[in-house]
Every structure is written in C-alpha cells, then in structure tokens.
Design a protein around this nucleic acid. Sequence first.
DNA 1: AGCAATGAAATCGTATACGATCCAGTGTCG
DNA 2: CGACACTGGATCGTATACGATTTCATTGCT
Lengths: 230, 230
Amino acid sequence: MTTTEKSTATNPEKNPATASKSETAYQYVLDRIRSGSYGPGYRLVLSRLADELDMSVVPVREAIRRLESERLITFERNVGATVTGIDPTEYLYTMQTLALVEGYATALCAPLVTPADLDRAREVNRQMRERLADFDPRTFTELNLRFHAILFENCPNPHVLDLVHRGWNRLGALRSSTFAYVPGRAARSVDEHDALLDALAAGDDVGTIERIARQHRLATLEAYLAHAGT
Amino acid sequence: MTTTEKSTATNPEKNPATASKSETAYQYVLDRIRSGSYGPGYRLVLSRLADELDMSVVPVREAIRRLESERLITFERNVGATVTGIDPTEYLYTMQTLALVEGYATALCAPLVTPADLDRAREVNRQMRERLADFDPRTFTELNLRFHAILFENCPNPHVLDLVHRGWNRLGALRSSTFAYVPGRAARSVDEHDALLDALAAGDDVGTIERIARQHRLATLEAYLAHAGT
DNA sequence: AGCAATGAAATCGTATACGATCCAGTGTCG
DNA sequence: CGACACTGGATCGTATACGATTTCATTGCT
C-alpha cells in the first residue's frame, strides 16, 4: 500500500493538488464520451472503472453523478450507468437547445471577434469545402466544431458558454454526425458558414448575427428531420 | 441507531422505491436553497447534513456533486461546500442566461397556451398589481414566478425547460429579488406582463413573443445595473 | 414446447474507518 | 511589539466491508 509512505512533504508525485480522484474519473469518462470510444448505450460498471483508474468506487460514483447532471449518462437505480443514447427525439431537443445557446453565444462574441479570428475561421471553412469531395463525416464534424468554436469561444458570459460546451458534448456521443445521414447538408452548411462570416465582417448587429447562427444549426436539424421523415 | 430495524421487508415506510438517499439529500438541500433558508455563502458541512438526514456522508457527497454541477453550490477541495453567492457579475450572467432560455421557452409554449392559461396569468398579474401599494419583495417574486411558470411550464423541449428551472433556482438563492432594490421596476414589470399577455392573446408569431419575453427579463437586469451603477 | 418459479452471480447502496489537509489559536523568539 | 513556527481540532478524501437489489439462467411444472 502507499499509505505508509509520506508523499506529501518530499515527494512531488504527479500533482495531487490539481486533481482529486473524483475529478480524474470525471475527466476520464468525459473524454471517452466526447471522443466516441464510449458510444451511446455503453455500459459503465462502477467497479470496473474504479479498477481501471486504480481507485475505489466512491470517487467514481461522484463523477457519475456529475455526468448524470449534465445528461451525458443515464443512471438507473440498482441497475447501473450507461452513456445516454440519442434517439431522434433527444436529438431534436439537443439540437434545438444548442441552436439557442450557440446562436446567442456567437452573437455575444460578435463585437469581440477580430479580423484574425475571421481569417482563421475562413481557413477552417476552406478546409471543410475541400473535403466535400471525398467525404468523411468524422473529420468534417471535427472541423465544424473548430469553425464554430472560433466564433463562440470568447463568449463573455461563461454560463452560456458552458451550455454550448455541454450541447456539443452530448452531440459528441454520436459516432457520426447528421452530415453522414443527410447527403446535401454538408455543402449547404459550408455555404452558410461563409454567409455568417460575411455578416460578422460587415459588422451586422448582434440580433442579425444571432438569427443567422441559430438558423444555421436549425437548418441542420430540419434537414435531418426531413430526411428521416422520408 | 436505525440500522438494526429491518424496514425493507415488512415496513412500507414512506416509499423506499422512489427515492434513494442521495436523491433525498439532493432534494433536501435544493429545497432549502430555493426557499432561501440556506442563503448565499451558507456553509454546508457534510457530516452535519448526514446527521440531520440520518444517513452517512457518502450519499450527501453525491448530492453535493450534482448541485455543484448545477452551479448551486461551490465546492472547494479540502475546505467544504457553500451555497454559491451571487455577486453582481454572477447576477448578470444568470439573468442574461435566464432571459435567453425563458424567452425561448415562452415562445415555444406560445402556440400551446390556452385561453384558460391566459386567464390564470392575468389573474396572477392582477394580484401583483394589487400588491404594488404595500410592497413585499418576497411575495411579489413568488407571484412573478407563478406568472411566468404558467407561460413556460408547458414547454415541449424538456432540456430548455430544465435550464429555465435551473436559472430560477439560482435566483432563488437571493433572499429578495431585484424588485427590492429598484423601486420603479415592479410597476413597470407588471405592465410588461400585460403586454406579453396581449401579444399571446393576439397570436403574434413566436419570434415576437420570444423578443418580448426576453426583453422583459433583460429590462429587469438593466434596471438593476443602472441602479447599482448610480 | 412454453411458461413460471427459484436460486446464484453481478452490481449497486450505504455505513464505517482512518489518513490527509486546512484553519485558527497559541506561544516563542527576534 | 510583531512575525513566525507549532500544535490541536475540524473537516474533507478515500478505501474497505457488507447488505440490498436486480438480472439471468436453470429447473420444474403444465
């Protein structure tokens, strides 16, 4: 056991000050959900996680509670935890909410966006357009996040920004995005990105920016619904 | 101790099936924060809570984690948990976010609102107007919540609705509302309520409803900021 | 063959125990 | 007289232990 050794005084160890075990467990699971290696429905066994992380189940439980509160995992009493699945209805709710908060975050950012930011965003969008030919939903979604992140990451309201992150995290649970299902959507999405950047460059008022950004995401949702309904 | 008695088999107790201990603890603390009996900065000692609730600290810790994730509690490692205080900046963030989500929830509800709902809302608003004379911020805020709840509680998007509830919960931590600080605000707020009801009754489009509802809350925020800045 | 009851294994729920850390109050030394 | 080191109590962090619940496969009955 490590209990006998006095790690505190002489031994820097890793860095016990920065991360409690429950925090470690939280990040561990969150990363795996975001990266997609824990797909929807993936069964999380507390004792197994505790073994993997070399800790007891108590910190793991705390991490699970936090993730549960963020709707990333579903916890059923006496049964266990699974990564929250996204059925079409949940997808609708999540996308609608993301449209709301991301649109607002983008609008709040608009006055703070620098020309350099716009250049970076245009560059990312150029890469996206390039990839339209040989299409890979995975990297396309990755680029899509990077594009939008440039435009909302400086959001001055941390609560709103946090909600945006949570929305993206939930979407990350999907192995592939809407772009995989709805053929034409990717190309139109790239065009809408340019329109958004033009509006930002022109210094349009924040109400307009919000409307464009929200509508952009809702359009993806509607494309999915139309396709699924067919 | 209660450990000796076997309540599970023979004793129906309250209803052990519906609430785990960690859930009990969660509700317990949440209620006290909402009701204001745990004010901002209130120190939550885990072991004391565990004693009060007649359980061990483990479930209490899980409850705290959930509340922490909802920003209702601030938890510092090796130090303890306190009810999150709301300084002016936090107040701004919270109100801004609430304006966003509540406005949207109200708009999503607009098509579902029945004439009966509108009547109930008008009745509540009438009571609010009545109380303007001998003004009590506490009951006024209570009525204010009831008024808005009628208009957003049927929100078809549960994620958005949940965000609205969380926003109100955070505001509940304040012992009294903005109305206590900014004299003229209450009267104007009541008038805006009528305007909102008129728009709903007239069947205005959802974009208009959202704009009115959002602006209504932002106006309260701005009234506070102007007053504080003076 | 199909269905219901039974039992065992897996997993969760909670209590208890103990080490680690922080904070405050006290005393000593410059 | 003030600053610093020390010590004690309070509280948190985690591990371990054991009871409770669910689930699933097996068995027996119709």
